[in-house]
């Protein structure tokens, strides 16, 4: 059974966090904290040395996670420990293609098939996805599609054919963690996406506060939000004091659950 098939209709909350950040053991506590709030989705980021589609905050998190040579297998084991079948929260992996290729596609899918519901491969465009999508689909893992403000209607139609899970709409024409949100544009594009697909549309990139979450919900037609950089930023705001970080994370997640 795939948790992503039973997402609520509105106000979906997806939380992103890099595996192994700041350290592998502390990372377990971070995900535990996140899970205790029962968000609709948790996205587990597999650290990559060159995360070119992410902003400086997530890059820093990747760097910290990789300090101790965290392996892909260790990240996958971490996700496994949280045992998704015990939760209603959907589990999604977010990663770069080189990580999957080097691990071996078949081995990778075998490893993740019972531990996650979906996967976002940031640098795998529609043009290259065929073989991977087929293997994922055989194992009931949804390949989550990204749509950007630069994706025109014709291309969106191609991309969104048979889409499953949810659609990740990249709100700002910017990388994760940038700060401008154009609600009018978001609303226009989300509406257009919703005409092409029936799965929920989540808005990500640049969502930083309770106000952003409420605004997205009120001013646009989106079904929910994805928050990532803002969760990691707290760690640096608090001068890397881990116990304080857990507390501030708790407070922040409570706030953004609307």
């Amino acid at each position: 059974m795939n948790n992503l098939d039973s997402l609520p209709k509105k106000k979906i909350l997806s939380l992103f966090m890099t595996c192994g950040f700041p350290t592998l053991n502390q990372s377990k506590k971070v995900f535990n904290e996140m899970l205790s709030h029962q968000p609709d989705i948790i996205e587990f980021g597999l650290p990559f040395s060159d995360p070119m589609a992410d902003g400086p905050i997530i890059q820093e998190a990747n760097k910290l996670a990789l300090r101790s040579k965290l392996s892909t297998q260790q990240s996958l084991n971490l996700i496994k420990e949280f045992n998704k079948s015990k939760n209603n929260t959907s589990f999604v992996i977010m990663c770069y293609l080189n990580t999957v290729r080097k691990f071996g596609l078949n081995k990778f899918i075998k490893n993740i098939k019972s531990i996650v519901d979906g996967i976002i491969i940031v640098d795998l465009p529609f043009e290259e996805e065929d073989a991977i999508k087929r293997s994922l689909s055989k194992n009931n893992i949804h390949l989550i599609k990204l749509i950007s403000p630069m994706t025109d209607k014709k291309r969106s139609q191609k991309l969104l054919k048979n889409s499953k899970g949810f659609i990740y709409y990249i709100s700002a024409t910017g990388i994760t963690g940038s700060n401008k949100l154009d609600y009018k544009e978001i609303n226009k594009n989300v509406k257009s996406i919703k005409k092409m697909s029936s799965v929920p549309v989540l808005v990500g990139f640049g969502i930083k506060s309770k106000k952003d979450v409420i605004d997205i919900s009120k001013k646009t037609n989106a079904d929910g939000v994805i928050i990532g950089s803002a969760l990691i930023q707290k760690y640096f705001d608090i001068k890397m004091d881990f116990n304080k970080y857990l507390k501030s994370l708790k407070k922040f997640i409570q706030e953004v659950k609307i």
Binding site: A53, L97, V122, D123, L124, P125, F126, E127, E128, K145, L146, I147, S148, M150, T151, D152, R155, L159, I170, T173, G174, I175
Partner: peptide
């Protein structure tokens, strides 16, 4: 036509860059 030299090359970028 899709930028492959044998199996090498291609376009492995996020959807923000793909249309460009």
């Amino acid at each position: 036509t899709i930028g492959r030299f044998g199996e090498f090359g291609g376009m492995y970028v996020s959807e923000t860059l793909m249309p460009l």
